[in-house]
Simulated assay, not measured.
Amino acid sequence: MMNAQEKLKERLNKNLHICVGLDTDLNKIPSHLFKTNEPILEFNKIVVENTYEDAAAYKINFAFYERLGSRGLDIIQKTLEFIPKNILTIADAKRGDIGNTSEMYAKAIFEELNFDSITLHPYMGFDSIQPFLIYKNKISFLLALTSNIGANDFEKIKSSEGKFLFQHVIEKSNEWNINKNLGIVFGATKIEELKENISLFNELYVLLPGVGAQGGSLEDVVKTFDLNNSKNYLINVSRALIYCDTSKNFGEAISHTIKEYNRKVVPN
């Protein structure tokens, strides 16, 4: 069975960099799906069926499922069954707590749900991250510079050393990446900061949210990584992809759209 790093490497070597964000919202899915027993699950199934050949990964945003309680967790588990086993799955759960609590979160995500990777916030320090890092065949993405406006509130505060907080996160991520199972989250909306800091990423995996609805430019991100001879990145697209069409043929529209994104990653 392939581990997380092998799954990701295989897709990236095929020049597949689009991560499909399953931020599935009942208020946005096509109305005809409400005739099915579980509209969210049916929606996710159709999305996966029409993207798996072109996707580098799937990111499930826990907020959209946890709001449904135990039913939401059941939908997560069943959605994972639709995703081919050779494609990376990301639990976008943004965990991070004191050691014994993080240990339980890690067991839940990596053992019970069997995700390949997770998003974490690093602001409680190494002991909050370590329980995830002991899973050498999984990947943990630490929030560095996020795509939202509020990133300026804390992530861009300068320390006495003259570095931004997010730069300290990148530095520590490199330091902690002994088993090559760490990555960072870096917003695609922060293209100037990406250009200025990409040389610091080294062997870290990079997950870039913010393309599409948040205004990030896929072309600018790809160009930046190409100029630095790096393929070690995932561009997450959620709303702009999965809600690109609301007709009964929305699956075909999604399939066409992800192919268009891939063509922009590797121009003919």
Rank of each mutant, 00 (worst) to 15 (best):
V47T: 08
E42D: 15
G99K: 12
A63G: 07
K59R: 13
I75W: 00
P84N: 07
K45M: 11
A93Q: 03
I87P: 03
A91C: 14
A106D: 06
N100A: 12
P84H: 06
Q77T: 12
K78W: 10
D92E: 10
L73H: 09
G99E: 12
Y52C: 01
E81K: 14
E42P: 08
N50W: 01
A56N: 02
N44V: 11
G99W: 04
E103S: 15
M104W: 09
I87N: 02
G99S: 15
S102L: 09
G69L: 03
I60A: 00
D97T: 13
I90W: 00
I46T: 13
A55H: 06
A63H: 11
Q77G: 15
D74A: 08
E81T: 09
N50T: 06
D97C: 10
V48I: 15
K78M: 07
S102Q: 13
T51N: 05
L88M: 03
F82N: 04
G72P: 01
D97W: 12
E53Y: 09
N61K: 12
F43Q: 04
I109R: 01
G72K: 02
L80D: 03
N50G: 09
I109A: 03
K85G: 05
D74N: 14
N50D: 08
A106T: 10
K59I: 03
A57T: 04
M104K: 11
N61P: 09
E81C: 05
I76A: 05
E103N: 14
A106W: 01
E81M: 08
E103W: 08
F64R: 09
E66K: 13
A56M: 00
F62Q: 11
E42F: 09
S70I: 12
K78R: 15
E103D: 15
I98K: 13
Y52E: 02
